[in-house]
Design a protein around this nucleic acid. Structure first.
Length: 569
RNA sequence: UGGGGCGUGGUGUAAUUGGUAACACACUUGACUCUGGAUCAAGUUAGUCUAGGUUCGAGUCCUAGCGCCCCAGCCA
């Protein structure tokens, strides 16, 4: 976890209350839950959290915080075939990273397996549930269609005694996986599929990551979630839109069982342009080696974004701006990038780094001289202070910052032109040295000693200020330029083949090996964030950067007005 | 086709709950600047899915259409 961040759990105040806040405020006003607010964040431990989960958990934890309530963390671990402890710790780390804490309220749906089992027997005894021997295919065949009612299972009218006996034997492991299920006896003709005698329990003989082989029957989501909410006395169970259709069943179980009447409220989940946010696709990216892992800096996972250099504050700001509503929407990736830049601009220390070095020789500068020049660490934050940067006769500048033949409106270095070296001197290009192929390998300049520090006594202006590093003092670094993983706005809609990988961006990672960075970066710590002046925001890679072998990840580029001008020609 | 939900600029959210469409991102132009960054200023794009209706007045209410999303896992 980052140690330098000032994490925040405080929700933004000055925004019109969204519909969830309105609902909660109404419930508080009416005394529906005695003025209490209790929410929960219920991840399934079968993958890593991504920015979409961040929206959900910020709503869950944020609502609780706003109304002085509590938010439980509950792992929804009812499917041993898909879940693993590997994910539990990662999920907790990510929640903490976003600045939230569940105190001592860490729960697992699997903790409730015993009570859930008792609830099931309760429904059987009330004649509201039955053991069904239909195969999965038969169940599907009995379900009906959008317009036709389903048909009742031939096992629907078993006696309570038989159901009880069978269910107990299911639990005892007497039956094969898939051979029987426990189903709620509701209405096979319901226009809502979810109510057509939904499965409550299925037989699964895979060991569970927490309960081991204690159980061989597991509750379905619908038979676990609402009851878990009720057990924890959750007042507001906030979830995404696809569960709206489950609400009648959620309430049916609670009513039939006589449990705490949690209110479920649904909101639209987050969609982002140029990315995918489904576990299935994210898993494929990892499994197929398209990215290096769940924490690849191009991934929209929280661990990936953290490694990329995103801050929790930026994510909170982003989430605050997109709001909460029930409309399906797709948020522009550029809004996220804006929030990241906005945050980093205020806090990232400025340094000079040259990604594609071009040698500059100051012909009239003393051969062996070295000067230490003062540079501002952050123009947005005076308290960040200054540092000394070494200057000498031979420097590196960015290849992009020199043109032998300048295009229109180009006012960086070119023959005859004078520019400022940031915090150093004005230099004027006199001539270049080329190699056999005609490529410029050395730019020769003269400097004006009177402009030390970057100011001219005669007040003459230079149009451009460029960054540089002293050749003999510079450190080598590897720089990873990350960009959007997909070129398509909506990758999952793309292309005839129908595969979302069709729009993978071939330049989502460009590795620069010969970068030259200023010496102050020698001790860059993991996830330490910097602005490479005029280039972008970067952070030391948490996995691979070491002293002597620095690796920096580009979090996001700086806005590049020149690129736009150049593009227009 | 049954059911559930949703339609406001390129994008996302607002609109004192019936009072004359706002904020942000994006985009454009300009100012300023020791980052072509940041900042500041100005500007373009909607007459609120459509058609009727109620009303002095409708994005908000009514009616009928249209469009989009979700649901036929022993996933969550």
């Amino acid at each position: 976890m980052s140690t330098t961040d000032t994490n925040t759990t405080a929700p933004t105040q000055n925004r019109a209350p969204d519909f969830i806040r309105q609902a909660i405020e109404e419930d508080i006003a009416s005394g529906r839950y005695g003025g209490r607010v209790a929410t929960r964040f219920p991840p399934e431990p079968n993958g890593y959290l991504h920015i979409g989960h961040a929206k959900a958990l910020c709503i869950d934890f944020g609502m609780a915080a706003r109304y002085g309530g509590t938010c439980n963390l509950r792992f929804d671990d009812t499917n041993p075939e898909k879940e693993d402890v590997e994910y539990v710790d990662a999920i907790m780390e990510d929640i903490h990273w976003l600045g939230y804490d569940w105190g001592d309220r860490l729960y697992y749906a699997s903790d409730y397996f015993g009570r859930l089992y008792d609830f099931a027997e309760q429904l059987i005894k009330a004649g509201k549930a039955y053991v069904c021997d239909l195969t999965a295919d038969e169940v599907r065949g009995h379900r009906g269609t959008l317009t036709e009612a389903g048909i009742n299972s031939r096992f629907r009218e078993r006696s309570i005694e038989e159901n009880l006996d069978l269910f107990r034997r299911m639990r005892a492991g007497e039956f094969e996986e898939g051979s029987r299920t426990l189903r709620a006896k509701i209405d096979m003709a319901s226009p809502n599929f979810i109510m057509r005698d939904p499965v409550m329990y299925r037989i699964v003989k895979t060991p569970h990551h927490r309960t081991g082989t204690t159980w061989c029957i597991y509750p379905m989501y619908d038979f676990a979630h609402g009851q878990s909410d009720a057990i924890e006395r959750i007042t507001h169970s906030l979830c995404s839109l696809e569960y709206e259709i489950h609400r009648p069943l959620y309430e049916w179980f609670i009513r039939e069982l006589g449990l705490y009447p949690t209110r479920q409220i649904e909101f639209a989940r987050l969609n982002l342009t140029h990315t995918v946010l489904s576990k299935r696709y994210l898993r494929r990216l990892v499994d197929e080696g398209i990215v290096s892992g769940w924490d690849d800096p191009r991934m929209p996972t929280l661990c990936g974004m953290r490694r990329r250099g995103y801050t929790p504050e930026a994510i909170h700001a982003f989430l605050d701006r997109i709001g909460v509503a029930k409309t399906d929407s797709v948020v522009d990736f550029s809004l996220l990038e804006h929030c990241v830049r906005d945050d980093l601009n205020k806090r990232a220390a400025r340094v000079m780094a040259v990604l594609n070095p071009l040698k500059v020789v100051i012909d009239n500068y003393p051969d062996e001289a070295v000067e230490q020049l003062e540079a501002v660490n952050n123009p947005e934050d005076a308290s960040a202070g200054t540092r000394m940067v070494p200057f000498s006769k031979v420097l590196y500048i960015e290849q992009d910052d020199f043109r032998e033949v300048p295009p229109p409106k180009y006012y960086r270095l070119h023959p005859g032109n004078e520019v400022r070296l940031r915090y150093a001197y004005y230099i004027k290009c006199t001539h270049v040295v080329k190699d056999a192929d005609g490529a410029v390998v050395e730019v020769h300049c003269t400097y004006d000693p009177a402009t030390r520090g970057g100011q001219s006594p005669d007040n003459r202006k230079v149009k451009s200020t460029i960054h540089w590093v002293s050749a003999r003092h510079a450190l080598d670094a590897e720089v990873r330029l990350y960009d959007k993983l997909f070129t398509a706005e909506n990758p999952s809609f793309e292309r005839e083949g129908g595969d979302f990988t069709a729009s993978l961006n071939p330049r989502s990672l460009v590795t620069v090996n010969g970068a030259k960075v200023e010496p102050s970066l020698a001790g860059a710590k993991a996830e330490q964030r910097y602005q490479f002046e005029r280039v972008g925001y970067f952070c030391a890679d948490s996995m691979e950067s070491k002293p002597g072998a620095l690796v920096f990840n580009r979090t996001v580029s700086l806005k590049d007005t020149w690129a736009k001008i150049a593009q227009k020609g």
